[in-house]
């Protein structure tokens, strides 16, 4: 086992539930270190894949190595070094926050006093000290999530699976969870994160795999994915709003396509990723005596990427997907 070995390497993973092939031949290489985003709508196969990799579900076909160990032959070696935070908070609602962490600490082999000390430490950094003695059923969604992640890092894992860690959280709690993920990665943990929020993948992930209907449809850095789709947007800002009509004519002639008049009377935008034409257009504007006070090239959003890759928007629910299929 060397340092460069990927954290996860799968080949042809398949899992079927009855007639439905929830995961239909997934090949994945997740490098060690950083955040790997697993992006897809509900029912795309994200959770099923993650449950197989976390040794909770046996694949019907395919092979996988996780942290250098064979998934089928050495699941216990994998379990000893990874943690999973599932989609639904996997903590005991009847117990208090502190008791939950002591429970996990004891199961990991800490003596009672050490487990209690570790629990207090984690409650502190996860901002749960005040709620330590409260039963988890009285926690808010954000508190539950934080406790859930704390429970996953009682012994810092080398690999952490986070299944939709921010689904259902308010923006403030979501940002807290993001901060914790970044801190974990800084401490050397590899994080595999599933999400249906493109924004989340964009913010956190070093690499992203897009999964749709049980198959990986694209893989790369968020930047690469956006570039592969191509269509960025050029935003042009004019010094004089009176010249907007003339500028529109020039842009339409040189770049082509539909020129959009933004709400700002000085601004125009047009979809293009052809840098040469954009350059020419700027020169043409200058020749026509139209003063440009600024311009900006914006990459396509991951929403656009998802649509381009799968032919349907990212936010379809399971029913919609079945209806479409």
């Amino acid at each position: 086992m060397t340092a460069v070995e990927p954290a996860i390497e799968t080949s042809g993973l398949v899992k079927a539930f009855g007639e439905t092939r929830a995961v239909d031949g997934v090949d994945l290489v997740v490098p060690t270190g950083g955040v790997y985003g697993f992006l897809g709508p509900n029912g795309a196969g994200k959770t099923t894949t993650i449950r197989m990799l976390a040794t909770l579900l046996q694949p019907d076909a395919g092979t996988a190595r996780v942290l250098g160990h064979d998934l089928l032959r050495e699941p216990d070696e994998i379990r000893a070094r990874m943690s999973l935070t599932g989609q639904y908070a996997s903590v005991d609602e009847q117990l208090t926050g502190a008791e939950n962490l002591v429970l996990l600490g004891r199961l990991l082999g800490f003596a009672k006093a050490d487990a209690a000390a570790r629990g207090e430490e984690l409650l502190d950094v996860f901002g749960l000290t005040e709620a330590a003695g409260k039963q988890v059923k009285d926690y808010s969604g954000g508190m539950r999530r934080r406790l859930d992640i704390a429970a996953s890092v009682v012994v810092t894992p080398d690999l952490l699976f986070l299944d939709e860690p921010t689904t259902g959280l308010d923006p403030r709690s979501r940002n807290q969870v993001w901060d914790m993920i970044r801190a974990l990665v800084a401490a050397g943990t590899t994080v595999l994160l599933t999400t249906q929020y493109l924004e989340e993948a964009d913010h956190l992930a070093d690499r992203v795999a897009v999964i749709d209907r049980g198959r990986i449809v694209a893989e790369g850095t968020p930047g690469e994915l956006k570039r592969s789709v191509g269509s960025g947007t050029v935003h042009v800002r004019l010094a004089d709003p009176a010249q907007r009509g003339d500028a529109e004519t020039v842009l339409a002639r040189v770049i082509g396509g539909e020129v959009h008049r933004d709400a700002d009377a000085n601004a125009l935008s047009v979809v293009s990723s052809d840098l040469e034409r954009v350059g020419t257009a700027l020169v043409e504007l200058s020749r026509a005596g139209i003063a440009v006070s600024g311009y900006r090239l914006a990459e396509p959003s991951l929403d656009e990427v998802f649509f381009a890759l799968t032919g349907h928007p990212a936010d379809v629910d399971e029913k919609g997907e079945e209806a479409a299929a």
Partner: peptide
């Protein structure tokens, strides 16, 4: 309470008991 700068310290302890 959720000072994230304190998080890395709490997370670098990788002592795994038996």
């Amino acid at each position: 309470a959720s000072d994230t700068r304190a998080v890395p310290q709490a997370l670098t302890t990788r002592t795994r008991p038996k």
